[in-house]
C-alpha cells in the first residue's frame, strides 16, 4: 500500500487547524493562561521597543542639525550681551544666531513643563538665564577649528556656559541602546517562561487526549498527524498572544497620548510621539508565534509511541 500521507495533503492541514481550534475552545482556561503569558511578555518587550522608538525619533529630529546654546550669566550687562552678539556676528559659523531673553526662556519652560509652572511662579525672580541659540552645520561642529572657537567663546565675559546639543543626542543614543537591550533581555526571559507555559499547557492537553491518541496510533495515524494539531495549537496560542500584546500596547499608547501627553511635559510628548512601525510589530508577531511553536514542540517531541519491549 502506498504511503499516502508522506506529503501531508491540504485536508490534513485543515484537520490540524480545526482540531487545534476545537481543543483550545474545550480547554479555554488553560489556553487563556498560555495566551496571557505570551501577551504579557510581548507587551513588556513592546513597551521597551516603543520607548526606544520614540526616543529614536527625537534623536532623528535633532540629528539633521547641531545646535549650540550659549547661556549668559543672570547678571550679564547689556554691554556684555552686545559684545557676545558682536563676536558671534564676526564668526560666520555662528551667524545664524537667535537671542532668547529671560522672559522667553521662562515662557518656554512653562509651555514644555506645564506641571512645574506653579513651582516657578512661587519664586521671587525669573531663574532662567538669557541665551543665544546657534544652528551649526554638523560637519562644522565636529571640526577642530570649531572646537578652538568654542574655547574662545567660553572665555568671553558674561557667558556662563556653552552647551552643544549633540552631547545629549549621544547620551540619548546610549539610553536608547540600553532601553532596547533591557527590552530584549526582559522580553527574552519572559518569552522563554511563556514558551514553557505553553509547553505545559500542551502537555496537559495531550494527557487529556491520551486515550484518543492511543486509538489514533492503532488505526494508523502517523506521529505527524497526531502531533500536528498540538503544534498548531501552540502556534495559534503564540500568535493570538502576540496580537493581544500589540492590541494592548496600542490601547495603552493611545490612552497615554490622549490623557497624559497634553497635560504633562515635553518628555511625555516625546514618548507618545508615534506607535511602533510595522517593521517592529512584525518581529513581535513572529516572536510570539515562535515561542508558541517552541513550547508545543517541547511537549510533542517527547510524546512518541513507546517502542514495544520484547521482554
Amino acid at each position: 500500500m502506498p504511503h499516502r500521507d508522506d506529503a501531508l495533503p491540504q485536508t490534513t492541514f485543515s484537520y490540524f487547524f480545526r482540531e487545534a481550534a476545537r481543543r483550545m475552545w474545550v480547554s479555554k482556561r488553560t489556553s487563556f493562561v498560555a495566551v496571557a503569558m505570551i501577551a504579557i511578555s510581548l507587551f513588556i518587550v513592546g513597551a521597551f521597543l516603543l520607548v526606544a522608538e520614540n526616543l529614536g525619533r527625537a534623536v532623528a529630529q535633532a540629528g539633521g542639525k547641531s545646535r549650540v546654546n550659549i547661556y549668559l550669566t543672570t547678571d550679564a550687562t547689556p554691554q556684555q550681551i552686545a559684545a557676545v552678539d558682536s563676536w558671534l556676528a564676526a564668526h560666520g559659523e555662528f551667524a545664524g544666531r537667535r537671542f532668547v531673553s529671560k522672559e522667553v526662556a521662562l515662557t518656554r519652560f512653562r509651555q514644555y513643563f506645564a506641571n512645574l509652572s506653579d513651582v516657578v511662579g512661587q519664586l521671587d525672580e525669573n531663574p532662567f538665564p538669557a541665551s543665544f541659540e546657534c544652528e551649526i552645520a554638523p560637519a562644522v561642529a565636529q571640526s577642530p577649528a570649531f572646537a578652538q572657537q568654542a574655547k574662545e567663546l567660553r572665555a568671553i565675559p558674561g557667558i556662563d556656559e556653552v552647551q552643544f546639543d549633540w552631547e545629549w543626542v549621544e547620551k540619548l543614543k546610549k539610553l536608547i541602546n540600553l532601553v532596547n537591550l533591557a527590552g530584549i533581555i526582559a522580553g527574552g526571559v519572559l518569552a522563554i517562561a511563556a514558551a514553557f507555559t505553553i509547553a505545559n499547557v500542551i502537555r496537559l492537553t495531550m494527557l487529556l487526549y491520551r486515550e484518543e491518541i492511543d486509538i489514533m496510533r492503532l488505526v494508523g495515524a502517523t506521529e505527524r498527524m497526531i502531533r500536528g494539531p498540538f503544534l498548531i495549537e501552540g502556534i495559534l496560542q503564540g500568535f493570538i498572544g502576540a496580537v493581544a500584546a500589540i492590541a494592548l500596547l496600542f490601547a495603552a499608547f493611545a490612552a497615554g497620548r490622549h490623557f497624559l501627553a497634553p497635560h504633562y511635559s515635553l518628555l511625555w510628548s516625546f514618548l507618545f510621539n508615534g506607535f511602533l512601525p510595522w517593521r517592529k510589530l512584525l518581529p513581535l508577531l513572529a516572536g510570539g508565534t515562535l515561542a508558541g511553536y517552541l513550547g508545543s514542540w517541547l511537549s510533542v517531541r517527547e510524546s512518541g509511541e513507546e517502542e514495544p519491549l520484547s521482554s
Binding site: M1, H3, I215, R217, L218, G220, T222, E305
Partner: peptide, 19 residues
C-alpha cells in the same frame, strides 16, 4: 517505527472495547 502507521492501515482491527 516510522513504517508502523502504514502497516496498521493494512489491518482492520475490531477491538474488544471498541476504541
Amino acid at each position: 517505527r516510522s513504517q508502523l502507521p502504514f502497516f496498521r492501515r493494512e489491518i482492520g482491527m475490531v477491538f474488544q472495547d471498541f476504541k
